[in-house]
């Protein structure tokens, strides 16, 4: 337990986390590529054709991981927000800012792929189904948080404000989700979903899980890159960052 606390303390420092993240990113690239390729092969070849939807259901392999990740990123932001508000950890401020645009992108991707999935079946590019409508509202919440970051000039005040906004959002998102679900049952609209059908073939399920892992690894790699940018900005006047910048410039100059 003490070792865990010491470890956490050590990596809450911006400098230590920076170099840890460089190592982590390198280690994660290969697993990402592997899971992505394996997942795509499974999705596009191995998984059998769907009884009702034919080949077009395969968009699910991008839609479901995106939707899942849009929620996962928000949970991350919520954790970072709590750390920011209660303990004022600088690293969590940077994590919060790094995650927001990524969350928005995954939400947007979920919306686009959901829309594409719906087109062959219902002839329209948009249906007001429960999941898509929830994702749309989530996208607006992400946009709001990003806009709030931009609107406040002082970086630390902006992080605290967005942290509070994230927590307020976290309380409301389940409410929004269930309200929209309740509302869509009134309308008996068509649903964009494959999961929840009685038995899902293992050949269909495994690529889905693998793709979700691939997306998550992608998110972590991208998020770490953004966190590193944030750390460089926060500590820009410190010697270690200045050394880092000059040594990188020298390497480029020598190439």
């Amino acid at each position: 337990m003490m070792m865990m606390m010491n470890l956490l303390h050590k990596y809450a420092s911006l400098k230590n986390f920076y170099f840890l993240s460089v190592k982590l990113s390198r280690w994660l690239v290969l697993p990402f590529v592997f899971t992505l390729v394996y997942g795509l092969i499974g999705a596009l070849w191995i998984a059998p054709q769907d009884y009702q939807q034919g080949e077009s259901f395969r968009i699910m392999y991008v839609h479901v991981p995106s939707a899942w990740l849009s929620m996962f990123v928000y949970m991350n932001m919520f954790g970072a927000a709590i750390l920011t508000l209660i303990w004022r950890v600088k690293l969590s401020e940077i994590v919060l800012r790094a995650c927001a645009p990524l969350g928005a992108i995954f939400t947007f991707l979920a919306l686009i792929t959901g829309s594409i999935w719906g087109k062959p079946m219902w002839g329209t590019w948009w249906v007001w189904d429960a999941r898509l409508t929830s994702e749309l509202l989530l996208l607006f919440i992400y946009f709001g948080i990003i806009a709030l970051f931009q609107a406040i000039e002082d970086r630390r005040m902006a992080a605290k404000a967005c942290a509070l906004m994230t927590v307020v959002g976290a309380v409301n998102i389940p409410i929004i989700h269930y309200s929209v679900q309740w509302w869509s049952t009134l309308h008996q609209g068509p649903t964009v979903s494959k999961i929840g059908t009685p038995s899902i073939h293992l050949d269909m399920l495994i690529p889905l899980i693998v793709m979700s892992v691939a997306f998550t690894l992608y998110f972590i790699i991208m998020c770490l890159a953004r966190i590193r940018i944030g750390i460089r900005e926060y500590d820009k006047n410190s010697t270690w960052v200045k050394n880092l910048v000059t040594s990188t410039l020298q390497k480029e100059h020598n190439q």
Binding site: L137, L138, F140, I141, G144, A147, L148, M165, V168, G169, N172, I175, I176, S179, V180
Partner: peptide, 8 residues
């Protein structure tokens, strides 16, 4: 920022 929370 408020409208998504007012939807329910």
């Amino acid at each position: 920022l408020s409208l998504p929370f007012f939807v329910p």
